[in-house]
């Protein structure tokens, strides 16, 4: 686990070798938090510029891919004099373990953050075993 620092830098996605994109655009790797709770796993991804319509979550076998399309907003007639970040799409791929209930995965985007809820399959939920006190 790495703890995020105050310094931020958008990292360009490491595309698969030999694969070319049809859109001539930069693609960034979104920063994510993955939190495991009792019943589910949460994935939060920073994708500024993305909303519910422009995000795509696909699951193919064990591979979960998140893709966010960004339409850059360029102020008309102004020139960029200082730039700390680039604008482009987002993509990141994860390999899911077997223990996720695939049918119940939920996704929503709020204020540029994608929130994925991945419910655990019934079999792996932690069960509490009551300990009986002997009289």
């Amino acid at each position: 686990m790495t703890v995020a620092t105050r310094e931020v830098e958008k990292k360009e996605a490491n595309l698969h070798h030999g694969v070319e994109r049809t859109r001539a655009k930069r693609v960034y790797t979104p920063a994510v938090d993955i939190i495991e709770k009792n019943e589910e796993i949460y994935l939060l991804a920073d994708m500024p510029g993305v909303d519910n319509e422009s995000v795509e979550v696909t699951l193919e076998k064990d591979t979960l891919t998140i893709y966010g399309k960004v339409e850059p907003e360029i102020p008309d007639g102004l020139r960029l004099t200082e730039s700390e970040y680039g604008v482009g799409d987002y993509q990141r791929t994860f390999t899911l373990s077997e223990e996720i209930d695939r049918e119940k995965i939920q996704a929503s985007v709020k204020n540029g953050v994608l929130r994925l809820t991945l419910p655990k399959a019934e079999a792996v939920k932690t069960r509490k075993i009551p300990v009986k006190a002997e009289a």
Partner: peptide
């Protein structure tokens, strides 16, 4: 490329009578 910066990252756009 863009170097790392302090959160949040900012871009500045300018013309003769506006800044964005």
């Amino acid at each position: 490329s863009h170097r790392s910066c302090e959160f949040p990252a900012v871009n500045l756009w300018v013309d003769s009578d506006h800044a964005v």
